Amino acid sequence: MKLKKIILLASILIVSVAAFAQKLPSDKLIGVWESVDSDPKLKFEFYKSGDKYFGKLLHASNMYEEDGKTPKKDFKNPDEKLRDRSRYGITNITNLTYEDGEYTGGKLYNPEEGRSYSVMVKLTSANEMDFRGYVGFSLLGKTMKFKRVLDKTQKASNEDR
């Protein structure tokens, strides 16, 4: 008899916790995020266009010329027409879709290498995310942690670097 009560109580507890554990809204990704554990240090502004999410590069600690002010050009871009553009402000995270609490199916263009990687993002809280870039399988990649700098109601500025 006690075992049945324990099982019933455990079941009620699990259902209660599951009912209260809600996923964050899909648009919670929108805003400015900064890496906390990567080299180079990165800052992206995520935005939504249609039903997909994109990330614009606001800062990378390795994106400036020796003067520390002039952004480097995208000189390794596979598209020769884009090699003269500035790395600052390029949309290099593209086509993330939100499903079951994760953003998947996206691509990350790395201007330092001129290569693209698959990417997935998971918000671990309203102000923290895990960002994983990989080639082929997600097991063959690297996860970086990011923290929110600005939410979607605030505006990013050049002085945020």
Rank of each mutant, 00 (worst) to 15 (best):
R87H: 03
E80M: 10
M129D: 01
Y98I: 08
E80H: 00
Y98F: 15
K145L: 13
P111C: 13
K81H: 09
F137C: 01
E128R: 04
D84M: 08
V121D: 10
G133E: 11
G133S: 15
T124C: 07
T143M: 06
S86R: 01
Y98A: 08
G114W: 02
E80F: 04
L108S: 07
D100I: 03
I93T: 00
S118T: 06
E128M: 08
V121N: 09
E112T: 09
R85H: 05
L140N: 14
Y98P: 06
E112W: 01
D130A: 09
S116K: 05
N92S: 04
N92G: 06
G133V: 14
R148L: 09
G136F: 01
N92M: 09
V119P: 04
D151N: 13
I93L: 10
T91A: 06
N92T: 09
K107L: 07
T91Y: 01
V121F: 07
S118R: 05
L82V: 00
T124R: 03
I90D: 03
Y103I: 08
R115F: 03
K76I: 08
Y117N: 02
T91C: 11
D79C: 00
F146W: 11
R85L: 09
S125E: 06
E113T: 14
I90Q: 12
K76R: 14
R85K: 10
G136Q: 08
F137A: 11
E112N: 15
E113Y: 10
E102V: 13
L123M: 12
I93F: 06
S118C: 00
T104V: 13
F137V: 13
A126H: 05
Y109K: 12
T104R: 11
K81E: 10
K81V: 05
S116I: 11
S118L: 03
T91D: 14
S86F: 04
K81Y: 00
Y103A: 04
T124E: 01
L108N: 11
K122H: 10
L108Q: 11
L139Y: 05
Y98H: 10
K142T: 05
Y88A: 13
D79L: 01
S118H: 04
L150A: 08
G106T: 09
L96S: 02
L96C: 07
A126P: 00
T94W: 01
K147F: 06
S118W: 03
R87V: 12
Y117D: 10
E99I: 12
P111W: 12
R87Q: 15
L139E: 07
L123A: 09
N95M: 01
N127H: 08
K142V: 15
G141F: 08
R132M: 00
G89I: 12
E99D: 13
G101M: 03
E102F: 02
G105S: 06
